[in-house]
Simulated scan of single mutants.
Amino acid sequence: MLLRIVLVSTLVNVAIQVEIARWSISTGRASMEGCNDVPPKLYGRGWISYIGILMFLASLAGIVTKEIDYRSSYRFVDEMDTAIGMLADGLDVSPVITYEFVMDDADQAFRTTATPEASKVLLRLGA
C-alpha cells in the first residue's frame, strides 16, 4: 500500500511541476506566483501551495511514528553568495554554455537538455 501511495504522489508531483513550469514560461511570472493564483483559493492561496505542506507533514508523520532519528544539513550555505559575487565581478561562464535559446524556442530548449551534447542550456527570458 505504501508503495502505491509513493508512486501516485510521485506522478501527481511531476504533473504539477510540469504544469507550473508551463505556466511560468508562458506568463513570464515566477512559479510561486502561479501556485497562489490557482483556484480554488484557500485562505488567500491557491490549493497547489498546500500540497507541499501536506507532503511534508505526511513524511514527517512517517518519521515520527517509526521513531527515526532524522538529521539534515543545508549544503549550499555560502556557495550561492560566492557564486553570485563571482558572476557580478564578471566571471566568464561562456565556456560551459553549450546552447542558448530565446523564449519562443522553449520547447526546443527543453528537448535539447536531454541530449548528450548539452552541458548547460540557457533560456533567455527577456531581451
Score class of each variant (00 low, 15 high):
L91F: 08
R124T: 12
S59N: 09
V64Q: 03
M32F: 11
A88N: 15
E33A: 09
F110E: 08
V18G: 05
V64F: 09
D107C: 06
K120H: 03
S72P: 01
W47N: 10
C35D: 03
E19D: 03
A109F: 12
G44Y: 10
L7W: 08
A83H: 03
D81M: 06
F101N: 08
R111K: 15
M32W: 07
T112C: 15
Y43F: 14
Y99P: 01
L54W: 02
P40D: 00
S31K: 04
A114D: 11
W23A: 12
N13H: 13
Q17L: 11
G46R: 00
A21Q: 13
A127R: 14
R29E: 10
I5T: 15
G52E: 01
D104C: 02
L2V: 10
N13V: 05
Q108I: 02
M32D: 04
M86L: 09
Q108A: 15
R29H: 10
V64K: 09
N36Q: 04
G34F: 06
V12D: 05
G44K: 11
L11S: 11
A83W: 06
W47A: 12
R29F: 04
D37L: 13
M80V: 15
G34M: 04
V77F: 10
T98Y: 01
E19F: 10
G126Q: 13
D107G: 07
V6F: 15
S24F: 00
C35F: 12
I48D: 00
I63D: 00
P40N: 01
E100A: 08
Y50C: 03
V102K: 15
R45V: 03
I53V: 14
M80N: 02
K66E: 07
